[in-house]
């Protein structure tokens, strides 16, 4: 059940993100909803499941938009692994931490892409990057995280309840 719902969630997000959601972009910046889902999932379920979801999401992006296999896979994989590590240390009901983590992850994600551009194609315009990409992405991501995290949180609660019944945990 959880597997099916998670796969469906990732695929639906991928389809929407590459088609409809692009119209909501402000100055061609729209938060990476796939990253928000991956990070939220890692925060809710820990690094192991987060890693799997992250790698799968990254694989989708690699297959459809990457020129080399593995770049996005590794990036999403690493980000979900490190956010998943901190899962035990916070209350899930609190919204502040997911917002913080998602914004931070989005920042790191953009920064790595900037680094790749800088190292591989010497296209490094740090001022343009910070003002036009880095800051807007962080702010916009923080805003969009709230509804997405709410949905994922509700879904997770529901699934956990079902799992508890299934395995007679109480």
């Amino acid at each position: 059940m959880r597997i099916i719902i998670t796969i469906a969630m990732v695929l639906i997000n991928f389809i929407l993100q590459t088609t409809l959601l692009q119209h909501l972009a402000i100055q061609s910046i729209f938060p990476n909803t796939a990253l928000i889902i991956v990070v939220s999932y890692a925060l809710l379920r820990g690094s192991k499941e987060g890693c799997i979801v992250g790698a799968f999401t990254g694989l989708l992006f690699d297959v459809f938009f990457g020129t080399a296999m593995g770049y996005y896979t590794l990036l999403y994989f690493a980000l979900s692994y490190f956010t998943g590590k901190s899962q035990k240390n916070f209350y899930r009901e609190n919204y502040l931490l997911p917002i913080l983590f998602c914004a931070l992850a989005a920042g790191i994600f953009e920064f790595f892409q900037f680094l790749t551009e800088l190292v591989l194609r010497k296209d490094g315009n740090i001022l343009f990057f910070v003002i036009k990409i880095f800051l807007p992405t962080i702010v916009y991501t923080a805003v969009v995280t709230v509804p997405i995290y709410r949905i994922l949180f509700g879904l997770n609660e529901w699934l956990e309840l079902k799992e508890k019944y299934k395995y007679r945990l109480f």
Binding site: F14, F64, T67, G70
Partner: peptide, 26 residues
């Protein structure tokens, strides 16, 4: 993953089986 990236990097090939399956679904 790094090894795959290094070996497959920069080649303009037609899609592999895995890619075709994902493409067929999405």
């Amino acid at each position: 993953i790094v090894a795959v990236a290094l070996f497959a990097g920069g080649k303009n090939l037609n899609a592999s089986a895995l890619e075709s399956v994902l493409g067929f679904v999405v």
